[in-house]
Amino acid sequence: MKNLKNIGFTLLMMLSLASCKQENKEVTVEETKKGVVSEADLAKMQTASFTIEGMTCAMGCAKTIENKLAAQDGVGQAVVDFDTKIATVKFDAEKQSLESLTKTIEGVAGGDSYKVTESKKM
């Protein structure tokens, strides 16, 4: 029985460490199924930042929010930095707004986990 507890504890520790390793990688439309955004199109897009509370790890929380933002119509690029708790998004203002992007962030994981405490256009 003691060995079973040790094995269970070891597996739990390995799982928790593997799920929270840090990786800062920009997610662009090219990595989603929407298509390709050119550098010229990205340059024309507006940029906004969002301060997000409630994230507990880089690979689970931050990566999920990043992927949800990048998958939105009109979003050319999304980067979520777990350490600073800031999401930076390049978007087409004709298709998205600060309010719609905030709703996307706060709606991830059923809407109970994340809260945007500040948003601003840059």
Rank of each mutant, 00 (worst) to 15 (best):
N3W: 14
N3S: 14
L4P: 00
L4G: 04
N6T: 07
I7H: 07
G8V: 08
T10L: 15
T10M: 13
T10S: 14
L12S: 14
L12F: 15
M13Y: 15
L15Y: 15
S16F: 15
S16N: 12
L17G: 15
A18E: 06
S19Y: 13
C20T: 14
K21I: 13
K25R: 14
K25Y: 15
V27Y: 04
V27R: 01
V29T: 12
V29W: 03
E31R: 06
E31K: 13
T32V: 07
K33R: 09
G35H: 03
V36E: 05
V36K: 03
V36P: 00
A40H: 03
K44R: 09
K44Y: 03
K44E: 06
K44L: 13
K44N: 12
K44C: 08
M45Q: 10
M45D: 04
Q46G: 14
T47F: 09
A48R: 01
S49M: 11
S49D: 14
S49W: 11
F50C: 03
F50T: 00
F50S: 02
F50Q: 00
E53L: 07
E53I: 02
E53F: 05
G54D: 00
A58G: 13
M59T: 13
G60Y: 06
G60N: 07
G60R: 03
K63L: 10
K63V: 04
K63C: 05
I65Q: 02
I65L: 11
I65A: 03
E66C: 10
E66P: 08
K68C: 11
K68T: 05
L69H: 03
A70G: 12
A71I: 02
D73M: 07
D73L: 12
D73N: 15
G74K: 02
G76E: 03
G76F: 03
Q77A: 15
V80S: 04
D81C: 11
F82E: 00
D83Y: 14
D83F: 14
T84C: 10
I86Q: 05
A87K: 03
A87P: 05
F91Q: 01
F91L: 03
A93Y: 00
A93V: 02
A93L: 01
K95M: 10
Q96A: 13
Q96G: 09
L98I: 06
E99C: 09
S100V: 00
L101H: 04
T102Y: 04
I105F: 10
V108N: 02
A109I: 00
G110F: 09
G110Y: 04
G110L: 05
D112P: 00
S113G: 01
S113H: 08
S113N: 08
Y114S: 01
K115S: 03
V116N: 01
T117K: 06
E118R: 10
S119L: 05
S119E: 09
K120Y: 14
K121E: 15
K121V: 15
K121S: 12
M122Y: 11
M122T: 05
